[in-house]
């Protein structure tokens, strides 16, 4: 599902209440000093977590050998270390987790770190920058040669693009998944249009709207123009059209090879 609600929910955060009756209690917004203290505690917690916990729970707490702590019910219901502290100091011998004799302040810092990670992940569950973004080596499962051959061969990429021209350093410009998504389909690239009026006069510019009823451009003359679609002749030049066509032809191997090649353009 699409979840516009989640952002609102994250903002709600502290407002959310399990109380069955009555209005939920409202917490006052933290002051800048409190926020700074939380951030400092989270930073200390990050170091403690890395040293003691990351071997099983991963540095970002998403889990590995041990459970993902970001989606843990216990972690999310913790209040100031009341649940997490018990697990840390007592361990989970039945599940292979040894006890970690930590002080209350160390536990508080770990809790601050986990809360910071939860906020980050809840805002970026699916979209946007993951803290553990996909490394290039995981995507570069093709070969440079095959990618280059596709670029200059069946893909006909070299018709419009050059590794020493517009694509020079492209792998430095984008992180690995963004690079792949952008070469597969560089959405957002605007179309241009030439609009011919009944008088024969033409306007050219960036296409802003072209539906059943109206057409609008940002003209080369720097002015916005619009007309009823039925009253004019419209010639659209969409640089995405060739990418849309190519997208239907890519095999997964083509994609992997092209990425492996483009990732060398640093």
């Amino acid at each position: 599902m699409k979840k516009p609600a989640l952002v609102v929910l994250a903002i709600l955060g502290v407002v959310a209440s399990l109380a069955a009756q009555g209005a939920p209690p409202r917490a006052a917004a933290p002051t800048p000093a409190e926020l700074a203290a939380q951030a400092a505690a989270a930073e200390r917690g990050r170091v403690i977590f890395k040293e003691n916990c990351s071997a099983c729970h991963a540095e970002d707490a998403t889990g590995g050998r041990g459970p993902d702590l970001i989606r843990s019910s216990l972690v999310r219901h913790d209040k100031g270390g009341d649940l997490i502290g018990v697990v840390v100091t007592g361990g989970r011998p039945d599940k292979g987790m040894p006890p970690f004799p930590m002080t209350q302040s160390q536990i508080s810092d770990i809790v601050a770190f986990l809360n910071a990670q939860i906020s980050l992940f809840d805002l970026h569950t699916r979209y946007g920058p993951y803290p553990n973004d996909i490394p290039a080596e995981r995507l570069a499962t093709g070969t440079v040669e095959a990618g280059k051959a596709y670029f200059n061969g069946p893909g006909k990429c070299n018709t419009c693009h050059s590794p020493t021209g517009d694509l020079a350093g492209v792998a430095k410009k984008y992180n690995p998944p963004d690079l792949e998504v952008r070469f597969l389909y560089p959405s957002g690239t605007p179309a241009t249009a030439i609009v011919t009026l009944p008088s024969g006069k033409t306007f050219e510019g960036t296409l802003l709207l072209n539906d059943d009823f109206n057409v609008a451009i940002m003209g080369k003359d720097g002015w916005y123009h619009s007309w009823p679609t039925s009253a004019v002749k419209i010639e659209v030049h969409d640089p995405l059209a060739v990418h849309a066509e190519l997208l239907q032809k890519y095999t997964n191997a083509d994609m992997h090879n092209l990425f492996t090649y483009l990732e060398t353009l640093k």
Binding site: T62, G63, D68, I70, R126, P177, V181, H243, L247, M255
Partner: peptide, 25 residues
């Protein structure tokens, strides 16, 4: 539509989304 789907959290311990996906066109 076409999308590209990445498995970012392989293995049996995965939780949550465990992947990323992008709409292309």
């Amino acid at each position: 539509a076409m999308g590209v789907f990445y498995l970012t959290m392989p293995g049996k311990m995965a939780e949550g989304w465990a992947g990323r996906d992008f709409f292309l066109s």
